[in-house]
Design a protein around this nucleic acid. Structure first.
Lengths: 168, 168
DNA sequence: ATTGTTGCAAAGAGTTTGCAATGCT
DNA sequence: AGCATTGCAAACTCTTTGCAACAAT
């Protein structure tokens, strides 16, 4: 039986996964189907766990978390699943800090950017119309076709600012 | 004899290095002095080559380029010099693409961000007052002390857009 | 039955580090 | 003389891959 978005939806419902972005869902089943891939239990467990959350995971974090309930899953499976999700547009890849790759479920809410606390590592999401405008204007001014952007603000979150000297 | 900004300036002039940002210069000599470091010929050759350019180097690129004129310099020296420069605030580190670390001389001109062509890798710098405003506003709205930001716009530069289908 | 998937261990890529020789001061 | 610096090779970390056993279709 061919892999379809409908079938995948049923699968996700069965797994009780809260995933309501139709476009990205189609992307995934198309991506799987287009590559001749199958529904494997373990891969789906990784995807379920990942999609069900709102965190910005390192591979290690996701691996450790999944191992708690599914000790039989290996590192490479997590790597392979995340890579697949990224290719299908279901995961966004970030490099907030040096030598650190983080994966975030895409489509969980609308486009956003991040505040990154350099002290505790906390990541705060924000959306800003202003950035979209800026992106368009800057692209225009530089004769550039913008596809996407990365915008991070680094500093101290409210909690950590308290501990260090005031910044204002 | 202690390492001073003046002495360093003389050194740079001797080497014919175009480096006119006083503040960053002070940072470097202070950084060197503070760490009890010495003026070594090889490190200075790396620094000279790096500071004299306006590129966004990978370690490998810088290494290859320096080796053309200084075949005696090793990989680790380049790594160590760039790391030092980054610590002293004379080099900015970027991760424009996955698995790629690039170093850019800081202080060569005022703060700027980057357009990154996903086709040919070209990097275009731009400055935008708007982003500074946004950073301040967003930080305020989220009770966050902003120190710095990273903003990249990914897409196609004018040359590469011509080859692919129009985007508009 | 056929072909994709997995875990493991090994291999890669990028970066750092221990150490003996060398260079600054 | 005393200590920083260097190049090399080895070590390290993160990620990918080959392969034999296993699972999905």
């Amino acid at each position: 039986m061919a892999l379809t978005a409908d079938r995948f939806t049923v699968y996700l419902m069965k797994m009780n996964v809260n995933f309501n972005n139709k476009r990205v869902l189609d992307d995934l089943s198309n991506c799987l189907a287009g590559k001749g891939l199958r529904f494997s239990r373990k891969r789906m467990e990784v995807i379920e766990h990942f999609i069900g959350s709102t965190r910005h995971y390192t591979v290690e974090q996701l691996y450790d978390e999944i191992r708690k309930t599914n000790p039989g899953i290996g590192y490479s499976t997590v790597y392979r699943a995340l890579k697949l999700l990224a290719e299908c547009g279901m995961a966004k890849v970030h490099h907030f800090n040096e030598n650190e790759t983080r994966y975030e479920p895409a489509g969980k809410n609308r486009d956003h950017d991040h505040l990154v606390c350099e002290e505790c590592g906390r990541i705060i999401e924000f959306t800003s119309e202003g950035i979209e405008h800026l992106q368009r204007r800057i692209a225009l001014e530089n004769d550039f076709s913008a596809r996407r952007h990365e915008f991070q603000i680094y500093g101290l979150c409210s909690k950590c600012r308290g501990k260090e000297g005031r910044t204002s």
